[in-house]
Design a protein around this nucleic acid. Structure first.
Length: 510
RNA sequence: AGUCCGUUCGUCUAGUCCGGUCAGGACGCCAGGUUUUCAUCCUGGUAACACGGGUUCGAAUCCCGUACGGACUACCA
């Protein structure tokens, strides 16, 4: 391991919302940085003007904020190596591209899209192993390797569209050590002459990311494994630019796969998979299509982070619940797995449940109050706290609270027919009438006292618990579910209990 | 098609580097227990080393091959 300062970057392109794979990449970078007292940088790779999506950058920043992934340096916060938006660094890249040309490692290419297509078709027809622009095919193309210097100058002066390509050598072994996968090697003959500079005056990702990583003194490049195949081109760039000794270390993380089996998870999956792929809800600015987010679906951000942290990484212990702080203390790259993982919505739910039951009642009540207000229910925080305490173990999300507790706030409007059929017998009305009397006589309407009184009555009259308590629950709740009947009774109060029993006697008929 | 990467219960995974406990945990599912009910909870159960060779006293672990999966092969990142 080297001892240089850890500086890592998360470098998304603003072509749309971040999906959970992107968030995980950001998270792993962040955790690695924090673990080593390093710096986490956000760099926006907006070199493709055509794919730019309005609002995407804000979305990325907001997502990281929600996740509690704090940006030390970069877009939105600034820093020593500003600007951090590649479109604003445009001029920097040109210099290096020209340096590569002067040193014989790159060249101008004037081929039109048409000509490129013809070349590929021709090679295909010849059953050539690949149709790349490479050491073989470039000899027949319109580029500065084949044209005279005069011609090249003339073409450039007359503003002929052109690109700058990397001159990839033939038959060289290009190797790098990946911190996740170990040594990976490629034969340079299989690499294509990557475009470094596009005809629109923008660099491509390949040039820009190498230049920026070097200038920003990035120590480790942690990214998805879809980048493995272009890494040798990057290694070549570091070498040709004379930066091989300062080259960052690479760690390629396994991809997050679609749960149905096929392929990597993609932004375009939206809600098609039956679970959100985005951290925050996203409205496509072009189509106005809305895709759901984890935040809006009721996930706590700390639970969400916990879920993501364990996708493709594990600490080697049996602990599964981790705070962000714990993660920053124990995270390490060498415990990142090699194979892709599928996201399991069921387990995600379980994680949220764990976080939910560990939250304090005040916080949950505060969140639940918003829902109650929307339903036009105005009740005291004190009451909601009591309710939450009784029902939180039965929920995975705050949004589950209503169906677990509506009966605290309103009378049942219907009675579950199945339960009615099973529990409401011929003589139940009479039993309820008697229970009603018993309840009406309770002075101190506390759950323990209600329970004691009712149970005493049952025993004294040789009734069974089920025969009394089940119909009673039906009256109070409308179904056969819910927390302790006596707790419910205490919270809704004697008057309400009496009213609901009367309603039940009247409305529930055999 | 080529290149690169990968493959342990249905899913997330431990164990692999440094061969040697009935291959461990979690989610899910199933059963039992607790409960006035439902849920939670507790206990138990279900279920995996892709395949074939080799090396070895012994292989999930090392080597080779096959199969399968994935990524990449753009003037996208």
């Amino acid at each position: 391991m080297n001892t240089k300062e850890v500086r890592v970057r998360f470098a998304p392109s603003p072509t749309g919302p971040l999906h959970i794979g992107g968030v995980r990449t950001a998270l792993f970078n962040y955790l690695f940085a924090k673990k080593h007292n390093g710096t986490f940088i956000l760099r926006i790779e907006d070199t493709d003007q055509n794919r730019y999506v309005k609002g995407a950058e804000d979305y990325i920043v907001n997502s990281l904020k929600w996740c509690n992934i704090k940006i030390d340096e970069g877009v939105g916060v600034g820093g020593k190596y500003a600007p951090y938006r590649q479109s604003e660094r445009k001029d920097i890249y040109k210099k290096y591209a020209e340096q590569l040309i002067n040193d014989g490692f790159a060249y101008y290419a004037f081929d039109t899209p048409d000509e490129l297509e013809k070349m590929r078709e021709k090679l295909k027809a010849e059953k050539s192993e690949n149709q790349q622009y490479n050491f073989l095919s470039r000899t027949a193309m319109r580029n500065s390797l084949n044209l005279s210097q005069d011609e090249v100058e003339k073409l450039i002066e007359s503003n002929t569209p052109h690109v700058i390509r990397l001159k990839v050598p033939e038959n060289e072994k290009v190797e790098f050590t990946d911190l996740v996968h170990g040594k990976i090697s490629f034969d340079s003959s299989l690499l294509d002459d990557k475009i470094l500079f596009k005809s629109d005056g923008m660099p491509t990702y390949h040039l820009a990311n190498v230049v920026d990583d070097y200038l920003m003194k990035i120590s480790h490049v942690i990214r998805g494994s879809e980048w493995i195949n272009s890494t040798p081109s990057h290694v070549l760039l570091y070498r040709f630019l004379g930066w091989e000794n300062e080259m960052p270390e690479f760690a390629h993380m396994p991809l997050i796969l679609k749960p149905n089996g096929k392929g990597k998870l993609s932004k375009r999956d939206g809600d098609a998979l039956g679970f959100p792929v985005f951290p925050l809800e996203w409205t496509n600015p072009n189509t106005n299509e809305v895709s759901s987010g984890y935040r809006e679906s009721g996930y706590f951000s700390d639970a969400f982070i916990n879920i993501l942290a364990l996708l493709g990484w594990n600490p080697g212990t049996e602990q599964e619940i981790f705070s962000m702080k714990e993660l920053t203390e124990i995270f390490s790259l060498d415990r990142i797995g090699k194979s892709g993982s599928r996201f399991d919505p069921e387990k995600a739910k379980w994680f949220n449940h764990q976080y939910l039951i560990n939250k304090n009642n005040e916080e949950l009540a505060f969140l639940y109050q918003e829902i109650l207000k929307e339903k036009g229910i105005e009740v005291s925080d004190k009451l909601v706290i009591k309710v939450v305490d009784l029902i939180k173990e039965r929920a995975s999300f705050v949004s589950d609270f209503w169906k677990q507790s509506f009966f605290f706030f309103q009378k049942p409007t219907e009675y579950d027919p199945k339960v009615v059929k099973k529990k409401w017998k011929e003589d139940t009305s009479d039993t309820m009438k008697k229970i009603l009397e018993v309840i009406e006589n309770i002075e101190d309407f506390k759950s323990e006292i209600i329970e004691e009184t009712v149970k005493n009555y049952i025993e004294k009259n040789e009734l069974s618990f089920g025969k009394v308590l089940n119909p009673l629950r039906l009256c109070l709740v409308g179904s056969g579910k819910g927390p302790s009947l006596f707790h419910i009774a205490e919270i809704i109060g004697k008057e309400e209990v009496v009213e609901r029993i009367n309603n039940g006697i009247e409305k529930i008929k055999k």
